[in-house]
């Protein structure tokens, strides 16, 4: 699996635009809301956590369709599935690469965007922490959707089937940040978020591997 990871990271490094795209999208969406809603600071502070979370969710999800597509087209996906690690190693390597190239930059960029919404420092910290826990779960869910819809026309289907599954992560993550913004304890929501991540971690990779094997037939 390390060899797969090595190759995926190398490929991601050769195409930096693929990683920057979601980041710029994230920043853009987070900037669109104040323009649409109005500059009232109190309102923005209330909406901030939710808006940033939705933007992060969309940024991660909309780039997931590319996860397996290129490798399917040039035939390296089926070679990787035949390798000793099997489809599971492919899924692990791709998901980890996706999170490192797309999710981690979001976690770093989010506090900067939180400044726009005038979030309190504790809230910003909780936001970063919640994104740190939540973005891997979103990567896993997106990989599952990408494997299910691999090779199909239209990329909206991926978002359609994955968004309902992403909702618990969104609710807990955004709820934690909102709680911190209001001065309440964010611990319970964060631990629920962690639980969502753990559930994703123990169920989704195998389901994604099965879906990948279906797609490669």
């Amino acid at each position: 699996m390390l060899a797969l990871l090595h190759r995926d990271l190398l490929l991601a490094a050769r195409r930096p635009a693929d990683a920057l795209g979601p980041l710029v999208f994230f920043a853009l969406v987070a900037c669109l809301f104040p323009l649409a809603i109005g500059p009232d600071p109190a309102l923005l502070a209330v909406l901030g956590p939710g808006v940033i979370w939705v933007a992060a969710l969309l940024a991660m999800l909309l780039s997931q369709y590319r996860l397996f597509e290129a490798d399917l087209a040039d035939g390296s996906l089926e070679q990787a599935v035949l390798a000793p690690g099997g489809a599971l190693a492919v899924v692990a390597a791709k998901t980890l690469t996706h999170w490192l190239s797309t999710g981690a930059p979001l976690v770093v960029a989010a506090p900067l965007l939180a400044l726009q919404y005038d979030l309190a420092p504790t809230a910003t910290g909780v936001l970063a922490l919640a994104l740190l826990i939540g973005t891997p779960a979103l990567s896993l869910l997106g990989a599952f959707g990408a494997a299910l819809t691999l090779g199909l026309r239209g990329h909206v289907l991926l978002a359609l089937i994955v968004l309902p599954l992403c909702v618990p992560t969104l609710i807990f993550g955004s709820g934690a940040t909102t709680a911190a913004q209001q001065g309440l304890a964010a611990g319970p929501q964060l631990s629920l978020l962690g639980a969502a991540l753990l559930v994703s971690l123990v169920t989704l990779p195998w389901a994604t591997a099965a879906a990948l094997r279906l797609a490669v037939e």
């Binding site: 299910l148 819809t149 199909l152 026309r153 239209g154 289907l157 359609l160 089937i161 309902p164």
Partner: peptide, 8 residues
């Protein structure tokens, strides 16, 4: 979502 997937 299930219906959309199986019909696609």
């Amino acid at each position: 979502g299930y219906l959309a997937l199986v019909s696609a």
